[in-house]
Design a binder for these strands. Sequence first.
DNA 1: AACCAATTTGCCACCGGTGGCAAGTAAATC
DNA 2: GATTTACTTGCCACCGGTGGCAAATTGGTT
Lengths: 344, 344
Amino acid sequence: MQKQATINDVARIAGVSKRTVSRVINGSLSVGDTTRTRVEKVISELKYSPNTQARGLASSRSYLLGLIYDNPDALYLDDVQRGVLEVCSNLGYELVVHPCRYRSETLVQDCLRFMQRSKLDGVIVLPPVSESETLAQALKDSGSPYVRLSSVALDEAKHIVVSDDRAAAAEMARYFAQLGHEHIAFISGPQRYKSSTERMEGFQLGLSAYGIKLRTDWIIEGNNTFETGIECARQLLQAEEKPTAIFANNDQMAAGVLKVAHSLGIKVPEQLSVAGFDDNMLASRVIPALTTIKRPVRQMALLATSKMIMSIENNDKAASNVAAKVAPTLVVRESTARVAGSSD
Amino acid sequence: MQKQATINDVARIAGVSKRTVSRVINGSLSVGDTTRTRVEKVISELKYSPNTQARGLASSRSYLLGLIYDNPDALYLDDVQRGVLEVCSNLGYELVVHPCRYRSETLVQDCLRFMQRSKLDGVIVLPPVSESETLAQALKDSGSPYVRLSSVALDEAKHIVVSDDRAAAAEMARYFAQLGHEHIAFISGPQRYKSSTERMEGFQLGLSAYGIKLRTDWIIEGNNTFETGIECARQLLQAEEKPTAIFANNDQMAAGVLKVAHSLGIKVPEQLSVAGFDDNMLASRVIPALTTIKRPVRQMALLATSKMIMSIENNDKAASNVAAKVAPTLVVRESTARVAGSSD
DNA sequence: AACCAATTTGCCACCGGTGGCAAGTAAATC
DNA sequence: GATTTACTTGCCACCGGTGGCAAATTGGTT
């Protein structure tokens, strides 16, 4: 347990003041070349690395980023986290993860407390927490850099990265229509989340371009879990009149649909087309592999983190220049097919 | 952006010295009841919360824990992370996540640097990184609290939480044998990881109790991914002579086996029994749902974190007293059945 | 040689807490 | 009532850096 070298050690050995060492560390320009080289040599010899706590105390920087979320899908979180960490580690930041409860009335307070307790340099907020306008406002007021991931553009470009779920859902509608489906059901996510309503509206809009209207009793609300996917699918598939295609708000619920179809002896995709949304690992594991919408989650995470760090390293307009919108894409696999009896 | 209250504000308003406020915050015993109450009142009125950086600087505590891992399965990581965070948030710690590369020659250096840069109070190390003895030794030498999660007891009780994968694999062997299987194949994980060899040995041991010996050409090494599961399954199922049961080192690979079986028209479980290991979300999503071994991942995470924090809050023997071993259990679902043609 | 501007360096206070020790106060003992 | 003992409280240095400003150095001018 050898003791850690301090800035004083470096200063003493290099024969300069610690202020100068500090300048070298922070890349200040006003340091003579010979001095700089000498100091750098000592730093590397001693394997000196500045104490971030002391640094933070003096300069209000922690090199810590926060990731705030509420009970996300494991696969989604993993994707995001990997993306964020990739940028972090390249740029010398660490990531502190922080679950919270979106519907708690102390959400704002919890998050602010988290930020100031750990003296975070900034936070990235995932859906659905990112949909809270009171939180966004509080973050803005607190002056801390933040970036939200969302399906809707609800903030200035510098504070958000959005995926156009509406357009993606419309594309799925078009795809279904072109396969000849007319009896289509939709299993939505919780209607209190904008991402859910966006997808639903996009889907309806897309269908209406083909003159197809979603029957209201074929729009069923789940909560994005496999289990509710099963429940919703039962309602749809045990009824007298069945849809020929089901679009679920995410892959988990689509997997639930596959499960029910299988247990009822309904063949997918021959008798029923099923599609999901996300394109996470699950989509390719199940049988048949799911047709779905690929959300560029990782890319969103990379963009968000870049924005974040630009914002921190005091260049807000640069942050705004990082792309703020990404387009999900349709991925066709085995779970969808031309409607039985039709040909094209 | 209202300014944060400091300890001085609290002291001034409460009419005491800041040292006394500090004592109240840290729950020191030698503070008079009336004084304590008064100070606590001011603290809550001001919503004062101590600056962790200053605190850390003065006392070498950061209330930050680290989680070190290398490219784990998303579902496994999620389980662990949730468990760790649950304990953290109850006890006032935050969690910093840190991916690293197990096989890098700078692993030890990276991890130590991470710890001292962020001044972590302790780290939890996941497999396979947890299997590095050089890292464990370095952590021990550095004097920082650490806990490893592993499938093998390779450290003192206070530094490790192990799951008895060997026994669990043996139980699977027994189960297979009792179903009448004799032609059994095993898809192993990378043999360089102890967890893989433990499971394999446990399985072999279990089978040998029934006089069954694994044919060496029916032991195939994958790398725990779905894709290699597929490759290995192809080798096994496209051969002239096929096994009647396949045990895969994890659920991902077992899912790959299901995929191949389906594409070859082999019925599971009628013609082939398939089992995995982990019991993650995937196991129940696929069709047929996988028989598998449930690893109590969350419980391990809880135990590890408790140990960690006890160790930090200077009570090493208490840390040793927290249970260090958990038992995985067999979960029977739909992917396994009595071997065709046998009855019992 | 004297002077001035520009650049490089050093000094010292300060960030917001905690540790050690001394001082103050109240209760207990003789 | 005086003295001892135990308990509370306050003072000040210190943790390891950074910011502001003054001092020192450098080089170019007149």
